[in-house]
């Protein structure tokens, strides 16, 4: 499958401040690709480079082989986007905003109506009078109202209520079914798990993992929540493949990779009040990467430009 988006060594510095460092990502045509990370990880910086709003300090961002900075107007004929917290003009109504943006994309007036009804957006209200969630609906409608083959969205479901989040996920699924490529950033882990085919996890500007959601979830790991009668002694869970994600004394949450028998034998010597074992969801995996518990992904200070990175990135 050809790549819709390709980032090669993509780096951005804001003076001495780190934006993103040496990102290598390929997004295949027709897939839904999630870009996962907390605030400040570099998601928005990456998307702004993809949209040609800022230039990379090093490396390249290409969409269908065209440079995202130099060919931005040409690329925007073939992509629709939604930035984080879009700054719509308060004096325009949602309808006027969408008609204007639609006209710039060559869409007929009112082509947003069906989507607005689906998301229960009142188009006649001035944007300045809309709540945060309703403004976000304007953005979602704006992104989906055309038929561009690529959708780039920065935290698109932020501010939407659960019902609308579900509707948003359905719209993403429909876009994928229509053969469109979707690149979305999020820190909503459930959303990524439900919507995406593949996920990249970004941490402090560096890519720490790119994999399919299925591969991440089926990585022979188990999430185990324990409730003990009394706090375990230090070192109780110092076992191969066992990672303590959280511990508040009697409540312990561990992740086990590979053979669970050593842990079960250790637990046999403890008074266990309750135990719940589950396959981890993306959230567990996300925190695993963010706790620096995966070999090679320990946190490190941002290196200056040119210092390179020894980080192993699985692709």
């Amino acid at each position: 499958m050809p790549d819709a988006i390709e980032l090669r060594g993509l780096t951005r510095w804001y003076g001495k401040r780190r934006g993103v460092l040496d990102l290598d990502v390929a997004v295949h045509e027709g897939e839904v690709f999630g870009f996962l990370g907390p605030n400040g990880a570099g998601k928005t910086t990456t998307i702004r480079m993809l949209l040609g709003l800022i230039r990379p300090s090093a490396g390249t961002a290409t969409i269908w082989g065209l440079d995202a900075w130099r060919e931005a107007p040409e690329l925007h004929r073939r992509l629709a986007c939604l930035g984080s917290d879009p700054g719509y003009l308060g004096g325009l109504t949602a309808a006027q905003t969408l008609d204007y943006l639609g006209a710039l994309r060559g869409l007929p007036a009112g082509s947003w109506r069906a989507l607005a009804e689906r998301l229960e957006l009142d188009p006649g209200v001035a944007v300045k009078k809309l709540s945060r969630g309703n403004r976000q609906k304007v953005g979602v409608v704006q992104a989906f109202m055309g038929a561009e083959p690529l959708l780039v969205m920065d935290e698109p479901s932020t501010g939407l209520d659960p019902l609308m989040q579900r509707e948003f996920l359905a719209m993403v699924a429909e876009a994928r079914a229509a053969g469109r490529t979707v690149f979305l950033s999020s820190h909503n882990l459930t959303e990524v798990e439900r919507a995406c085919d593949r996920v990249a996890i970004i941490r402090e500007g560096r890519l720490v993992k790119v994999a399919t959601v299925a591969a991440l979830l089926g990585d022979h790991t188990r999430s185990i929540n324990l409730v003990l009668d009394r706090p375990a002694e230090d070192g109780t869970f110092d076992l191969p493949g066992v990672t303590v994600l959280s511990s508040t004394g009697q409540d312990v949450h561990v992740m086990v990779r590979g053979d669970v028998n050593p842990l079960l034998r250790r637990l046999a010597g403890l008074e266990v009040r309750d135990i719940a074992i589950s396959t981890p969801d993306v959230e567990d995996l996300f925190f695993r990467y963010y706790e620096g518990t995966v070999a090679g992904s320990e946190g490190r200070a941002a290196d200056p430009p040119g210092a390179g990175t020894a980080l192993e990135v699985s692709r």
Partner: peptide, 17 residues
């Protein structure tokens, strides 16, 4: 002003140069 408020991003997210 439009860069500060984010409107420039919205408008330039279309084929408008």
């Amino acid at each position: 002003s439009d860069v500060e408020r984010g409107w420039a991003d919205v408008a330039l997210g279309t084929p408008l140069t």
